[in-house]
Computed example of a mutant assay.
Amino acid sequence: MYFESVGELWRMAGHGPYVWSCYGLFMVLLAVNVLHARSERLSALKQAKAFIRRNRN
């Protein structure tokens, strides 16, 4: 293993706060993106169903 301890892994020779904050921000943005896509999909499905109901006759 490259790092001798978990503490060294966390610190990464002084670059740890930058590296781990980037990973954290990436995970948050990924979660927001997934949740937004799901809500947009549900909204589109509702609109499509409403359109079909209106134009059925």
Rank of each mutant, 00 (worst) to 15 (best):
M1N: 15
M1F: 15
M1R: 14
M1S: 10
Y2E: 06
Y2C: 07
Y2K: 11
F3K: 01
F3E: 02
E4C: 02
E4W: 02
E4D: 10
E4F: 03
S5A: 05
S5G: 03
V6Q: 07
V6F: 09
G7Q: 06
G7F: 07
E8F: 00
L9R: 02
W10R: 04
W10L: 05
W10D: 01
R11K: 03
R11H: 06
R11P: 00
M12V: 09
M12D: 14
M12P: 02
M12I: 08
A13N: 11
A13T: 03
A13R: 14
G14H: 04
H15W: 10
H15K: 15
G16V: 04
P17G: 04
Y18P: 03
Y18T: 11
Y18D: 11
V19A: 06
W20K: 03
S21A: 08
C22Y: 13
Y23Q: 12
Y23K: 14
Y23T: 15
Y23N: 15
G24M: 14
G24P: 08
L25C: 11
L25G: 13
L25A: 13
F26W: 12
F26E: 14
F26I: 15
M27E: 14
M27Y: 11
M27T: 15
M27D: 12
V28K: 06
V28N: 08
L29K: 09
L29M: 15
L30K: 10
L30E: 15
L30R: 09
L30M: 12
L30T: 15
V32I: 05
V32E: 09
V32Y: 11
V32W: 10
V32C: 14
N33I: 12
V34D: 09
V34N: 05
V34L: 10
L35Y: 04
H36R: 14
H36V: 08
A37D: 13
R38K: 06
R38I: 01
R38W: 07
R38F: 05
S39K: 04
S39H: 00
S39T: 05
E40M: 11
R41Q: 14
R41L: 13
L42M: 03
L42P: 01
L42S: 02
S43C: 07
S43D: 08
S43W: 09
S43V: 02
A44M: 00
A44K: 06
A44E: 05
A44D: 05
K46F: 04
K46A: 13
K46H: 07
Q47F: 08
Q47N: 06
Q47G: 07
A48M: 11
A48F: 01
A48Q: 11
K49C: 12
A50F: 04
A50V: 08
F51M: 06
F51L: 08
I52G: 00
I52L: 05
I52K: 05
I52E: 02
I52R: 08
R53T: 03
N55D: 06
N55H: 07
N55A: 01
R56P: 00
R56Q: 03
N57G: 07
N57A: 08
